[in-house]
Amino acid sequence: MSESINITNIKDRIDRIEDILASVAAGDMEARIQTETEDDFSGIEAAIDLLINDLTEELRQREKVQKELESKLEKIQEQQKTILQQQEDLLELSSPVSKVWDNILILPVIGTLDSQRTQVMMENLLQKIVETGCTISILDITGVPTVDTQVANHLLKTVTAARLLGAECIISGISPAIAQTIVHLGIDLSTIRTKATLQDAMIFAMKQNKRDDEIRALKNIVIPNEHAD
């Protein structure tokens, strides 16, 4: 049985395939052979077109994925920037000292006490003590998750410095877990007046205030009497 191969214009058609492949290689993904002739060779031409289709699809997919990755990377970089910015903001957050009552200052400490922040905190507190003449200050450490020896040392120093200016410091907000940890560490905080909650510290400070007022009132009575004598 003999088979005859039926191909027309073989030379031109091979040239065309070469041209199309060259354009595709150069980046023209629209180029297709699209032969109109129907013979034994047209199957190969159609197959090449199909391959180019697949390749185009693959490339499109890849580009899409790459774009997605790039946009994700950009987002992550932006978030990173925000995080860094927030870190700086947090570190720069100075501790506000406010006068909440006659003679009473409150310094709420939140977050971590590193050496830089403690320095700012101490300066603020001492400054405010001098400015207002308050003799009781409450350091609330409810928002401090970890008290290690360095933090305890900073607190001791702050309390001592405030005492030198004539102000009594009360530390409040020591959690049960932190209390146990301080005992195990071996730190002696017995020289500091401490209260469990800010409320307890506030009550203590107001009682202290009342006592001071009474003493002052007594003095006022006594002094005129002295003059009368």
Partner: peptide, 10 residues
């Protein structure tokens, strides 16, 4: 627990 967490963290 919270006590052990605080201990190891400290």
């Amino acid at each position: 627990g919270i006590v052990d967490q605080t201990r190891i963290t400290t």
